[in-house]
Design a binder for these strands. Structure first.
Length: 423
RNA sequence: GGACAGGUGUUCGAGUGGUUUAAGAAGCAGACCUGGAAAGUCUGUGUGCCCCAAAAGGGUACCGAGGGUUCGAAUCCCUCCCUGUCCGCCA
């Protein structure tokens, strides 16, 4: 959500920014400016009528003894009210349309974000580790099934496609990863939270999942609740409609949750393996920070996520997304992509975004720079630290031995009863 | 799920149809006082939106949310949400 006042004060700036993201936004932008102007005109009219209404009511209160005067004043009051009813209907109508449209405007991106329409224009920032590429390395689904860590068929039987069962060491490995990642986040100063994983519509709208991406999420029948697509939603919304005391900033939270996504537009993508599931587990990192520090805090959060991959000794690269590929609510986003030797490619395992004040404005999270100052919007940042299913898949491929076993990454051994190999 | 009681500003708390522009108090900020402080005295103290080139100023809305009655609603009526207590049910 943007500040409408700011949109109308410097339209050229926004036009330039929006056109870099997506040219078709210009039309929406113009529409919003027009609605805004209409709405303000009507509001002024309505305010005037409401003023008149209040004056009449006051006057009746003061002259209760003069019966005739009161009668004529009442008549005047009714007249004003009938006019006001019309204007107010129009006002409500325009306000509704305006906010409805405004919710569809994406964030504008940072100047440091490369221009481009799709992922081909993303910029590689760095690479870490030595990718393996031996031909004998099996895909994670093949080796996972062979070692009885993953059971795809029973996942489908119990639920449907894109649901997988983990069993034995497979299930334990997932739990180990969850604990390791939470411990890592804690050591970096993130407070551990166990949030609701069903959230209401306000929360989904607040972080920007709705209204644009309705249909991507699981919704409870007869309840106005959604299964979270990411812990970002409950974590960021914890402070909705609050003014955070200055000394509490920055707020740093982490949470492990299952995540649920319908993957409606991904029919033929990643149909094998556990890369793209309807249900997956993730540890999420969220920061709520002062605007002037958000750049630094974003870099810091990305570093924190990278460190997990380094500790797991998984090769990865860091990508800065271009304007066209940056998510709806984000102003800047790094993707961490882990190496999958069997697929001979890097795949996204974490997405670390700085949202500026975009989410804060939608959900009304503020702070006061000084006790006397007006409350200002905070900045919000989040990133995966990390997607657990994909991390597990990466381990199955990167730690495979030629004899068909999986070495347990050093850092995880203490979480797995000190076993060193899965076979 | 049933019964009862509640939801007022940063906080406590008054207010059950009309000088309430939300009493009063606490807190906070400023000024005075003081060698300095405390105490005391005085003043100020919310948020959103709109008008205004800007500032100054003004308007409007907000007493859990949304409707309704009325010239006028924190106050009356309806629906919903939440909190508390008790009962029922349940990991």
């Amino acid at each position: 959500m943007h500040d409408l006042k700011d949109l109308r004060t410097r339209p050229d700036y926004y036009k330039d920014k929006f056109s870099k993201r997506d040219k078709s936004l210009l039309l929406l932008f113009e529409e919003i400016l027009k609605l805004d102007e209409q709405k303000r005109g009507i509001q002024t009219k309505a305010d005037e009528l409401r003023k008149r209404k209040n004056e009449i009511a006051d006057e009746i209160g003061r002259s209760k003894d003069h019966k005739e005067k009161v009668e004529s004043l009442k008549k005047g009051g009714s007249d004003v009210n009938s006019k006001l009813a019309e204007i107010e209907k129009e006002e409500m109508d325009l306000t509704y349309k305006l906010t409805e449209k405004a919710l569809w405007l994406p964030n504008i991106v940072c100047d440091s974000v490369p221009e481009g329409e799709d992922e081909t224009k993303n910029k590689e920032i760095s690479k870490w580790g030595n990718p393996r590429s031996e031909k004998w390395i099996k895909s994670h689904w093949e080796i996972g099934t062979k070692l009885n860590l993953l059971d795809f068929e029973r996942g489908v039987k119990v639920a449907q496609s894109r649901f997988t069962v983990l069993s034995g060491i497979g299930a334990k490995l997932e739990r180990a990863l969850m604990n390791f990642m939470l411990d890592h986040a804690s050591s970096k100063g993130y407070k551990e939270i166990s949030p609701p994983i069903l959230v209401n519509k306000e929360s989904m709208t607040g972080t920007g999942q709705l209204p644009k991406f309705d249909g991507d999420f699981y919704k409870c029948e007869n309840e106005f609740l959604y299964l979270v697509p990411t812990a970002e939603v409950p974590l960021t919304n914890l402070y909705r409609d609050e003014v955070i005391p200055l000394e509490q900033l920055p707020v740093k939270y982490c949470a492990y949750t299952p995540c649920f996504r319908r993957e409606a537009g991904a029919a033929s993508k990643d149909t094998r393996g556990i890369i793209r599931q309807h249900q997956f587990n993730k540890v999420e990192l969220v920061k709520i920070v002062l605007p002037e520090t958000s750049d630094k805090e974003h870099e810091g959060l990305t570093d924190d996520a990278e460190e997990i991959l380094q500790k797991l000794e998984l090769p990865y690269r860091k990508i800065l997304l271009c304007t066209g590929d940056t998510g709806f609510s984000a102003m800047k986003c790094y993707d961490l992509e882990v190496w999958f030797p069997a697929q001979n490619t890097y795949r996204e395992i974490s997405s670390c975004s700085n949202f500026g004040s975009f989410q804060a404005r939608r959900i009304n999270i503020k702070y006061k720079p000084n006790p006397k100052d007006k409350p200002q919007f905070v900045h919000t940042i989040n990133g995966s630290g990390l997607a657990i299913g994909r991390t597990m898949a990466a381990i199955l491929e990167n730690y495979q031995t030629e004899k068909g076993t999986i070495i347990v990454p050093n850092i995880l051994r203490s979480y797995l009863g000190n076993i060193t190999e899965m076979c």
